[in-house]
Amino acid sequence: MGKTGLKLIDENGIRIDGRKPDQLRPISMDVGVLKNAQGSALVSYGKTTVLAAVYGPREALPRHMTLPDRAILRVRYHMAPFSTTERKSPAPTRREVELSKVIRESLEASVFTELYPRTTIDIFIEVLQADGGTRTTSLTAASMALADAGIPMKDLIAGVAVGKVNGKLVLDINEAEDSGGEADMPVAMMPNLGKIVLLQLNGTLTRDEFKEAMKMSIKAIKEIYLIQKQTLRDKYAKMTEEEKEE
């Protein structure tokens, strides 16, 4: 039984939404969805839907907040008031402040900020619908928006959360599994380079479970990465196909 006494996984290892323990939710992605932003992306993991937009590099104001040798990143992770079961006040919560920080630090590991000294790169993330795994969905979306904006970076970032429900590790947890489960472990990485940029654990795991959870998340991240790449390629591929024919 989970924290709330709910049975979240049955005898046959099937979860409440019908998935197997190591199964991702249906994932959809789109880039260049907003006209005004330099780059944007809309990403859904199941019902969790996140919109990310990038403005910049642009002149940073006030100027004293800039850095002489690289761009600064400004990141806002924000949940829309209607994204949750009960209305969430639009004012930033402690949770949103913390998540903005960990997302910023993750993105900073990938962006070549040294190419744009004295500027700012703004990344705005709006969680439109929250059903678990919002920070990892946000990172996946933000990274694609950065790529769409043409911001140079080491690799795309993809993320996923592994959880533990009724004593079993499960991939890509939804909200019921997050709130009723024993652990929520969001992981994000630059898959081609094998570098982990985000790692958090809320809950308890044994050492062995932790190692297993890492393996599960890395495997899933590589799957998500392929979808990211396909989405970006699809946007630009048409163009080169025709160019090649010339």
Partner: peptide, 9 residues
């Protein structure tokens, strides 16, 4: 020895 939380910074 149970892991009860983690944060990369």
């Amino acid at each position: 020895g149970t892991i009860a939380g983690m944060q990369k910074m």
